[in-house]
Structures are given as structure tokens and as C-alpha cells.
Amino acid sequence: MRHISANTNACILLDKPPGITSFRALKQIKDRMGTSKVGHAGTLDSFAQGLLVICTGKYTRLAGMFMALPKEYLATFVFGTTTDTLDPVGQTTGSGRIPEEKEIREVIGSFTGEISQRPPEYSSVHINGKRAWKYAREGQAVIPQARPVVISGLVMESYNPPEAVFRVSCSKGTYIRSLARDIAQALGTVAFVKELHRTKIGRFSVQDAVAPDAFDPAKHCMAADVIFQSIPGVNLVKACDELCRLCVYGKDISRSGYAQAFVEGLNAVLDEKNRLVALVQKTENGFSYKMVTGEA
């Protein structure tokens, strides 16, 4: 994967180790990029590891695009035991039988496609303006509402009772801890997630990510064309200086000689140094600016 020398606007693939929060994983990025304007496109629980897409500077406005992408995980479920948090950090709250491998393989088919999933009580979903995990820690019985998610792939790669390793491909908003809970309930037992490794976000892979302590701004900031070639539905427009100036100042592109370079939908305008200049939406009604970085 190609990279560019860093300014304060960048996207970085980070390989978060287990045992730290996603917020703490950003510290090295903030220090070495020289900016406090740093965010990630989708958190990982502290026990989990794997891919985080980090956005800095003005590129933090791209986070929503990354968050909407599908995810892939490798997860280890432990059947026959559960915890209040549905992960290894919580307190043991129940036990049950350990299912046979055949039973598990028969039931997981009912958890693919669009399903209704209730987030865990210990989660970051908002309930009446407050995080669900705060209610749980206070001992208040508040149950998050179920919502639709899509499980596009669910494969049990190995089973060494009571532990099963699953590869899960899923949509934004899916909780793997809830998936473990619900599969176990369908089998008449309980389970929790022992290990969780996020391996992909859209076309971005953890194999291309860097550990927080190894991050080097000169080596690990993704080139703009790499970013947008990996996000479906975005057209790249390589712009000359004149078009860049039009975009920076928010001028009407439709009256320029460059309109034909744009397609219906979202267009990423890149300058000759391969930096993002603007995101421009083209519709039948004309052009609108969704983001201008001012880097021309």
C-alpha cells in the first residue's frame, strides 16, 4: 500500500493491541502527528485487537465514510459460561451445557442475512441520552432495543470444546458479543467472547496496519488515491491547479471546462501532489461541496 509524507490531515491504518482502549491507542498518533484532532472510525473494546482506521486533522470528517463500511472479525466464543459484559473482562454470571459441533453448525445458518440484534447491556449505544454501559454499571436494568444488522458471512473455522473460532463478516453496528449470546441461546446454553480480532474494514486489511508504538508519520499515512479507491462509489478526479483553486474557493464547477471530469455521485478531487482538495457531490441538479480541505 502506498503512503505519503504526513501533514496534519491524514488517514492511518492502526493495529490496536489487546488490553488498551481505542482512545489510548491514539496517543502515539496525536504525539507524532502534532495534533489533538484525531479520531477513529469505529471503536474496539479494550479486550479486542485489530484494525482501526484513524483520521486526523480535517480528515476526521471522513470518519463516517469508513464507519459505514462492512467489517470482518475473527472471534473466539466460549460456550457453557457467560459474563455480565459478554467478554473476558466481566464477572461470571451463568453456566450451561457445551454443545456438539454438529449442533452449532446447524444453527448458525439462521444468523446470516439481515437479522434483528439487541446490543449488549454493556455497550456504547445511547438510551435516553446516556450510554447503556453507564446504566449497567449503576445497576439499572435498562435493555437496549434490538435493531437490524446484516451478517454476510458466518463460518466456524474450528471447534475445540468449549471454544469455537468464527470468521464473521458483518455490517456497521453489529455486536459480536451479542452474536455469541444469541447463538448460545438458540442452542439452549450461554457463551461469551474470549478473543476478538478485527481483520478488515471494507477493503482495508489489518495486514497493512501498523502498531501504535511503530507509527511513523513519514511512512504510514495513506495516499489519498488509495483511500478513495478503497471506498465504493467514489470517483477520483485528478485536478490541475486551476480546478483546485475553483474547489478551494467553492466556485461553481458546472460553469467551468472541468465539469465533464465529474460523475453522478461523490467525487474526490485530488491535486498533483495526490492530496485531497475537496469532496464534490454531483446530481442532476448540479454540484455541491461536501468537504473542502484547502490544501491546493
Rank of each mutant, 00 (worst) to 15 (best):
R2Y: 00
S5H: 10
N9F: 08
C11V: 15
L13N: 04
G19Q: 03
I20R: 09
T21L: 11
L26H: 05
I29P: 01
D31H: 12
M33A: 09
M33Q: 14
T35M: 06
V38A: 10
G39E: 14
G39R: 13
G39T: 03
H40R: 09
F47M: 08
L52A: 09
V53T: 09
G57R: 15
K58W: 03
Y59A: 14
L62F: 13
F66R: 07
F66D: 00
G80R: 04
D84A: 07
P88R: 03
I98C: 03
I98Y: 01
E103S: 13
G109V: 05
G113D: 05
S116R: 09
Q117T: 01
R118T: 14
P119V: 02
P120T: 07
E121G: 08
S123H: 11
S123E: 10
V125F: 13
H126F: 14
K130L: 08
K134V: 11
A141L: 10
I143E: 14
A146C: 07
A146W: 02
V155M: 11
E157G: 07
Y159P: 01
P161Q: 01
R167N: 10
V168Y: 02
S169V: 14
K172Y: 01
G173L: 09
I176G: 05
A180Y: 04
A180K: 06
Q185C: 05
L187D: 05
G188Y: 10
G188D: 07
V190K: 00
A191K: 05
A191R: 09
A191Y: 03
V193H: 00
V193F: 03
L196N: 01
H197T: 12
K200S: 05
R203H: 10
Q207N: 08
D208G: 03
A209K: 07
V210W: 02
A211W: 06
A214E: 15
F215E: 01
P217G: 14
A218C: 06
A223F: 00
A224I: 06
A224E: 13
V226W: 06
F228Y: 04
S230I: 05
I231G: 09
P232K: 11
P232R: 12
V234T: 11
V237H: 04
C244V: 13
C247Y: 02
G250C: 15
S254G: 15
G257D: 12
Y258G: 08
A259L: 09
Q260I: 13
V263C: 06
A268W: 00
V269S: 06
T283D: 10
N285C: 01
N285M: 06
M291L: 15
G294P: 00
A296W: 00
